[in-house]
Computed example of a mutant assay.
Amino acid sequence: MRVMGRCRMAVFGLTLMTAACGSSESIGEGEKVALLTRAPTPANEFTPVELEATIDNLVAEMNENPIQPMHMAILLKTMTGFFAPVATGANRAMGELGVTGNVFAPAGQSNDGGESQDIQTEQIKEMVASGAEGIGVAPFGDGQKEAIEEAVASGVHVVTLDTDVAADKRVLYVGTLNGAAGATAATTLLEDLPPPPGTVMIHGHTVEGWADGIDRTVGARQVLESAGYKVLATQAIFAGDDQFDLDWMKPQFEAADPPVVGMVGLFNISYRCAMLAELVGKPELPVVAFDFDPKTVEFMRKGRIKATHTQRQYYEGYIAPYIIYGIKIIGLDATKQILSPLMMGDASRVNIGVDVVPGDKVDEYYAFLDKIGASE
């Protein structure tokens, strides 16, 4: 491997070289094959049962074949905040698989700066040149398309995480499918809404240019409209402070006809829906949120937010190395077949889903994250 210092890479953990095979099985007279063994996942009400079962099925199929050495890399946008649990999961999986590999991110850069994009592009090229057979990458955007395409053309299995690129530029995508996530949030809200007629306000994304935000908003809208509600989708204002966004939402709320009977927020600032309900003198309105911002947690503890929906970053990082290794051991088609319960009819995107956290289960969810090492 070439020296990576000139790329200013941040390396998470040590290179993983030791196989984590916990048993062996006879496959012929006098011949034994090492078996992959996953570390036990703590049983909990928040454990994603289908996701866990799918990974187990993938391991079982791989164990029908001789285990082979592999060099892979996971390239993230950063090692902190949202991506810290992703790194934890990826490192754990690579340790269990016994592959050679690291988790990298541009050192000392922001999540979306141009310099970070350039560094990540160089990282992809460096990993290909160093002999990586598989790469998991959370791309910054279109800037990584060419490097990913070149990697795939050279025979490297590239899986995108969190952010996708064009389907023909990578093998698979692993992450939250935003349309499904929005639909899940709307379905959670339905449990607390009065019967129609009524308007439901979505604190979402309505402006062209951010496909993921629009997909999440459309997913929520479709569920609510199908249930008979009128939908008022208001653009979440990320650039301003809380009050700026509230001043934007308040007149829309007050002009709604029929009146607003509930609100769903789809991003980390969705606690503002609860703030708006208090501002207009209707704190009893049912509100569901997205992500686990401290302000969201505060409103959940007060009973002002019924539930929130969190992305499974740990599992995003954990399943990616298993998928990459599965493609090497049993092939892409067989790997896709096992992953099909998570693909929702889309043969190129693996949906890790979201956790639905009720307002009275905050402490239990924190405990679950601590158990699997997924706290940010």
Rank of each mutant, 00 (worst) to 15 (best):
359 G>F: 05
293 D>N: 13
69 P>I: 06
81 G>H: 08
240 G>Y: 00
187 T>H: 12
19 A>C: 08
273 C>I: 01
319 I>S: 08
348 S>Y: 14
49 V>F: 04
205 H>T: 07
364 E>S: 14
159 V>N: 06
3 V>M: 07
69 P>T: 08
322 Y>S: 05
68 Q>M: 06
366 Y>R: 09
41 T>Q: 08
232 L>F: 03
140 F>R: 10
136 G>P: 09
161 L>I: 15
169 K>H: 11
276 L>P: 10
285 L>S: 02
232 L>V: 00
195 P>F: 11
371 K>T: 15
135 I>E: 15
210 W>G: 00
178 N>C: 06
93 A>S: 13
149 E>Q: 06
163 T>S: 10
140 F>I: 03
223 V>H: 04
144 Q>D: 14
67 I>T: 14
237 I>Q: 04
273 C>D: 02
232 L>I: 02
319 I>G: 10
227 A>R: 11
111 N>P: 08
71 H>Y: 12
367 A>W: 12
278 E>L: 09
61 E>R: 13
129 A>E: 13
167 A>C: 04
335 T>W: 04
33 V>R: 12
23 S>K: 13
355 D>F: 01
364 E>W: 10
276 L>E: 07
301 R>N: 13
59 V>G: 04
7 C>K: 11
248 W>S: 15
364 E>F: 12
130 S>T: 14
206 T>F: 01
177 L>A: 14
164 D>I: 06
33 V>C: 14
92 R>K: 12
214 I>V: 09
333 D>A: 10
42 P>A: 14
77 K>V: 07
140 F>M: 14
344 M>C: 05
245 D>F: 00
218 V>Q: 01
183 A>V: 00
260 V>S: 07
279 L>P: 01
274 A>N: 03
375 S>H: 15
1 M>H: 13
92 R>N: 13
357 V>N: 14
296 T>Y: 02
331 G>Y: 03
127 M>W: 12
2 R>A: 06
257 D>N: 02
346 D>P: 04
341 P>A: 05
81 G>W: 03
339 L>S: 09
29 E>P: 13
52 E>I: 15
107 A>Y: 11
146 E>L: 06
275 M>P: 01
368 F>Q: 02
232 L>D: 01
80 T>F: 07
210 W>K: 07
215 D>R: 08
202 I>S: 05
130 S>C: 06
82 F>R: 15
89 G>A: 08
